[in-house]
């Protein structure tokens, strides 16, 4: 397999952005907004953005939902199937940090935690942008893609909050998210 010049490939992606829609257990609110962003009204094709049906063809994964543990293996496989450079746009409150499900036992709870799983599996993600909102607006999704590719500069600074949750592997080999109950409320680190 030939080596990939990531910088050159990222430069070229700026003019041709093929996106793959990846629902990881979303309520479909953000998914409807993604479909809205892809309609002729917003005409994202003028920026070179095109929806593709296979992760093999994709440059950017439009990831929605808090990543349910049931969907986790499929999500990892889909992201692994993308050729590098692979980029992710985490869309909506759930994908950004789990939303109201951040400490549920059935979920991973947002893309930052998935990043750890991907890293442990040796899967590199070359760029991530978080688009908050419940649901995220189509304009915000398009803006997020442009920020991801460096076409425009982000208007706001990033602030990450660590939710009090940890992952554990059961004896059966399944990954579970376990809430961390501490005295004095949640452990928030900025």
């Amino acid at each position: 397999m030939r080596s990939v010049d990531l910088r050159k490939a990222l430069e070229r992606i700026k003019r041709s952005i093929w996106v793959f829609h990846l629902n990881t257990g979303s309520c479909n609110g953000c998914d409807i907004e993604i479909l809205d962003a892809l309609t002729p009204y917003f005409d994202v094709e003028r920026f070179g953005i095109k929806l593709v049906g296979s992760p093999r063809h994709a440059d950017v994964a439009l990831l929605t939902g808090p990543i349910t543990l049931r969907a986790l293996p499929k999500v990892v496989r889909a992201l692994e199937a993308m050729p590098r450079p692979r980029l992710v746009l985490a869309i909506g409150a759930c994908a950004v940090g789990g939303g109201i499900w951040f400490d549920s036992y059935t979920l991973l709870g947002g893309f930052p935690r998935l990043l750890r799983v991907l890293k442990s599996a040796g899967i590199e993600i070359d760029g991530v942008v978080y688009v908050p909102g419940c649901p995220a607006r189509p304009e915000a999704i398009i803006y997020g893609v442009c920020v991801l590719l460096g076409v425009v500069k982000p208007k706001v600074s990033r602030r990450a909050v660590e939710a009090p949750i940890q992952l554990e592997v059961t004896q059966a080999g399944e990954v579970r998210s376990v809430p961390m109950h501490r005295e004095g409320g949640a452990d928030t680190r900025t």
Binding site: R2, A9, R12, R15, S16, E45, R46, G48, P83
Partner: peptide
Amino acid sequence: SRIGPPLTQTWFDILKLWSKEAK
């Protein structure tokens, strides 16, 4: 009733794919 991509868009697509990883 859209603006649509530039005329050279397909060339951009081909060149981009050419510089990506082959899996």
